[in-house]
Design a binder for these strands. Structure first.
Length: 279
DNA sequence: CAGGTC
DNA sequence: TCTGG
């Protein structure tokens, strides 16, 4: 059965799903296949509506709405912020939304992302899901759900290596064990502020300032989170005149202070713009 | 070389 | 400092 959400905010699925914040979406014949709320579905935009079809389990409209953060008015964020490069990036990438992904999947994905590249990250995550996830079928597409912490703890070191995780496999295993043993629910951090959430995420092995800030902005709705990766660092130095020798944490703090309350959303536009058009 | 962490 | 493109 087809579901429809009338769009008041501009939404570009290609930009939103393939700008390096999510790693598991697949495109086929104008439909985008993937998981929202742990359920397999396909999406497309037609006549200013976001249309979606679920495989078997129903996905509520508010979950889809929330996944794309459609309650946030990007126009207001960028209009209220007078910065040349941000304005250019916003105009060029209109419709790109910062996603609100599942925090658990986001955490593991960004631990895997360390010092890697998007195709490889996607491949590793796919192998992990294929091994452990539940199988869903929609049209002729197959989807595997993201495994739970307890499922991952059952894996061996050599299995992790076979997925191409390299030295990150240990971090993924250890983090999964901590979460499983302490029955930690990352979704509890929706109710915590940025600073407390960051402090807690940093206690996991394989999670440093960059990965933690990715989890905070791409899944936990901490819109002032500001991940400083290679591209953003380059941007801050080349385009905003920061001293290259400034520490990563101070660069992050500078970004949060300069770009303000929604620095994470602006960061994603600048990050993608820099990577795509201005490397 | 590549979207860092310990 | 793993390892694939």
């Amino acid at each position: 059965m087809m579901n429809k959400i009338i769009l008041k905010e501009k939404l570009d699925l290609e930009l939103s799903l393939f700008s390096g914040q999510a790693f598991r979406w697949k495109k086929k014949l104008n439909w985008y296949y993937g998981f929202i709320d742990n359920k397999f579905l396909k999406l497309r935009i037609k006549n200013n509506c976001l249309e979606y079809v679920c495989s078997d389990d129903w996905v509520a409209q508010d979950k889809v709405y929330d996944y794309f953060g459609l309650g946030i008015k990007y126009n207001e964020i960028f209009e209220n912020f007078d910065d040349e490069l941000s304005t250019v990036a916003y105009k060029k990438l209109q419709g790109m939304r910062v996603l609100n992904q599942d925090p658990w999947e986001c955490l593991i994905s960004f631990i895997i992302s360390a010092w890697s590249n998007v195709p490889k990250i996607s491949n590793t995550i796919h192998l992990l899901c294929q091994k452990l996830g539940y199988k869903y079928i929609l049209d002729d597409m197959v989807g595997y759900s993201f495994p739970s912490p307890i499922q991952i703890t059952g894996l061996t070191e050599s299995e992790m290596k076979s997925f191409g995780m390299g030295y990150r496999g240990q971090y993924v295993l250890k983090t999964s064990k901590i979460i499983e043993e302490n029955k930690i629910l990352l979704s509890d951090f929706y109710n915590e502020d940025y600073f407390d959430s960051l402090k807690f995420l940093l206690t996991f092995p394989g999670v440093g300032d960059k990965v933690a800030n990715c989890v905070l902005i791409y899944s936990l709705k901490k819109y002032n989170a500001f991940p400083v990766d290679l591209w953003v660092e380059r941007l801050l130095v080349e385009d905003y005149g920061l001293n290259k020798k400034m520490s990563l944490i101070n660069k992050r703090k500078w970004g949060q202070n300069y770009f303000g309350k929604y620095s994470g959303i602006i960061q994603h536009y600048l990050f993608h713009y820099k990577r795509k058009y201005n490397h």
